[in-house]
Amino acid sequence: MNGFFGPLDPEGRVPPRQQTRVAAFLISAHGALARQFAFTLPLKLDAAWQTELNAQFYRETEIVSLLMRATTWVPDLALGYMAASWETAWFPTPIEGIADRSLGQAVHLATLAHAVHAGIRPAALLPVEANASDPFVMALRRIEFESGRLLQAQIMFLKGPDLVPFRAAVSATLESRHIDLRKLWSGTLESVGIAVDE
């Protein structure tokens, strides 16, 4: 095992089995964010910051759409139970130290989005020889690039003035989110022969 996709085919494409499992994980995570942003997005925006919710919702949807079309899919029997474990990990959980339910929900969504956007770097799995003209390769690069931008909304909210009184709770929740997500991501990668440095 090494830390990159491969072995690539003669055209520099990622093996379809690795594409399938990695794309399924990313669709699960970004799809969960898209759904949760959709539920949070009001029909009529009341505040300027809500425009960011709209942007996040559509960017997440774009990522799901992109992966569905750019991936070379192959049948994968293990995906059923793996997807079930991923999906349960995205469920909202109470945030210890934050009693206000709506604030807790916002922190849940922001910490989940931070972990997904910051902690998952799919383009870093591409070896140097990966074919830059391949749609899956380009999709992963786009997703990592867009994630870096989407992340800014989470950073601004989680570091912002509203959460200063809850800084310890927010930091602990975010660290824990990152650890949990890293575990799922590492497990997914290792299941298709990609080693992850810990």
């Binding site: 972990a115 910051a118 989680l158 570091k159 800084r167 930091s171 975010l174 990152h178 440095d197």
Partner: peptide
């Protein structure tokens, strides 16, 4: 690098 990366601060 290989050191831990605190998530927020």
């Amino acid at each position: 690098g290989a050191s831990d990366k605190p998530t927020l601060f």
